[in-house]
């Protein structure tokens, strides 16, 4: 395939067009490096850097284990993702869950199931009164739609438990 002319292949020619091979080589290098970056983005996308994947899906618990939150760390503006909050309480009692911080600034809650017994505002966020079942478990499923852009920090706690801190990022 190679012949002795190969060594001058990349020299600039003056006829029939004026070439600048140094520049053209840069362009080709840019294309090659760009391709690597595209593949990298694809892999990161598969891993969930841009929401829904191993990197993004988080499972946070409070230190005392009373509150557990399963959520997506990375969201995209306009798309919806689920969030599951489980609280341990005395069986057949009610428990107050407080969601505070920037969560409600960045997200709108599209659905909440089951509906809590009572909802009221509290600080920047809201307070939900949940009914625990016979095993002392109260769970609420939310669907969050990302409306904002950027980083949102929020924290959840049930009456008397430690905080669960959430950090979420919404891509444009």
């Amino acid at each position: 395939m190679k012949d002795e002319g190969d060594s001058t292949d990349l020299h600039s020619r003056q006829f029939p067009i004026r070439e600048d091979m140094a520049y053209q080589l840069k362009v080709w290098r840019f294309e090659r490096v760009g391709w690597y970056l595209l593949v990298l983005c694809m892999l990161l996308g598969l891993l969930g850097l841009f929401s829904r994947g191993v990197i993004s899906s988080q499972d946070a618990r409070s230190d005392d284990g009373k509150v557990r939150v399963e959520y997506e760390m990375f969201h995209r503006n306009g798309s919806t993702n689920p969030m599951k909050i489980s609280v341990r309480a005395t069986p057949e009692s009610t428990v107050e869950l407080e969601i505070d911080g920037e969560l409600l600034d960045g997200f709108s809650i599209e659905t909440m199931q089951p509906m809590p017994q009572r909802m009221r505002s509290s600080g920047q966020g809201m307070r939900l009164r949940l009914q625990a079942d016979a095993q002392g478990q109260a769970t609420v499923y939310l669907t969050l739609r990302g409306d904002g852009l950027g980083l949102f920090r929020s924290h959840l706690n049930a009456a008397g438990s430690n905080d669960v801190k959430l950090t979420q990022f919404i891509f444009p």
Partner: peptide, 25 residues
């Protein structure tokens, strides 16, 4: 103009392929 549109590149000269250029392109 060069940045956006690029420049033309010769790939055959007097009946000979410029192999290294072909490979890059």
């Amino acid at each position: 103009s060069r940045l956006i549109d690029g420049e033309p590149t010769i790939i055959v000269e007097n009946g000979k392929l410029l192999h290294r250029r072909l490979r890059h392109a």
